[in-house]
Design a protein around this nucleic acid. Sequence first.
DNA 1: ATAATACTATACCGTTCGGTATAGTATGTC
DNA 2: GACATACTATACCGAACGGTATAGTATTAT
Lengths: 188, 188
Amino acid sequence: MENDHILLDRALELFSRRGYDAVGVQEIVESAGLTKPTLYHYFGSKRGLLEALLKRESGHLLTAIVEAALYQGDLVLTLERVVRAYFSVAKQHSTFYRMQLGMYFSPPESETYHAVWPFAREQREILEGVFIHAAEDHGNLRGRHTRYAVGFLGQINAVIGLYLNNEISLDDLRVYELVHQFMHGIYS
Amino acid sequence: MENDHILLDRALELFSRRGYDAVGVQEIVESAGLTKPTLYHYFGSKRGLLEALLKRESGHLLTAIVEAALYQGDLVLTLERVVRAYFSVAKQHSTFYRMQLGMYFSPPESETYHAVWPFAREQREILEGVFIHAAEDHGNLRGRHTRYAVGFLGQINAVIGLYLNNEISLDDLRVYELVHQFMHGIYS
DNA sequence: ATAATACTATACCGTTCGGTATAGTATGTC
DNA sequence: GACATACTATACCGAACGGTATAGTATTAT
């Protein structure tokens, strides 16, 4: 295994558990069994390490939801695929998901917020695309794509937040519940 | 104005903009026109300052939603009051709301997460109480109070997140939309 | 007048921060 | 054999970190 990959793995583990600011460069290289010049050779700075990490790990999530978000006439089916994609990444890459979720809500002038913002926007645009397409079939959705995308993502992340705190599991029933509630409310 | 209040105000401003870890004690006291021994006299440690800050500011939010969450037979009405309470605090204390939202999603071994956790749990319990009470009138809600509380809070925070990024405003229409969608889904 | 209490400034503690200058050691090319 | 390239360790940089010992200055109670 290459040393740059080892560094990224260790940084991901430490950042997701304790946060970017609370983890020093020294600790990362020690945990990787290397020294600082190696890290600075590959990434140039601590910020560069963070950006390389986000770039590598976001790939999983973005490709998964791009594929899932292909709208082909059935909104429920599409949303279920999207939720399943999110759940799948949250389960297989839970440390990364925890990290990017925390960074999305980090303060607006922090390094982490600026670093994660492009990837967060991309996620939202993909979801907005679903609702924009669906509005061609369901006129009453028109003009509310941002609202829906944000609200839907908010619910997904609320559920994944519970999963990351070991309060629930992420299974097919949970997918159905989430989408059904989003589409039809809580009574039915 | 007392010096301890000045310190809390400056800490709130700085933490909410750049994050707890990224702001040093020195910067806080300089911004307050004071020196470090004053801060350590009142709060004992940086962590103590954070906890005092959360305690002071959470009061606004908790009293507001406790009052709003009184269920008296009309779930829609109660939820609208709750959303209005959240929106009101988010508008009047936007720096605090941003801070506590970020801390709720901060890494699980960070100081900020541990400090904010008791207040987050209290919020959720209040909301769960609404759905537990409502289930006495609407049997099909029974046993899903956690799910609903978390999902509802997720949607509220998603919308407030948009507001904090200056993408939307928080008005009565937005309250209606949020509750209506939660209750009846997106089609109606 | 005196003593106790509450508060605040100066100056400092040891440690850690992100980052780097220097000196290597491999590996492959010509 | 000479040389460039890629990578990594030792040892260090100045600055900032959270926190404190000491010495005060007001205010209050006795």
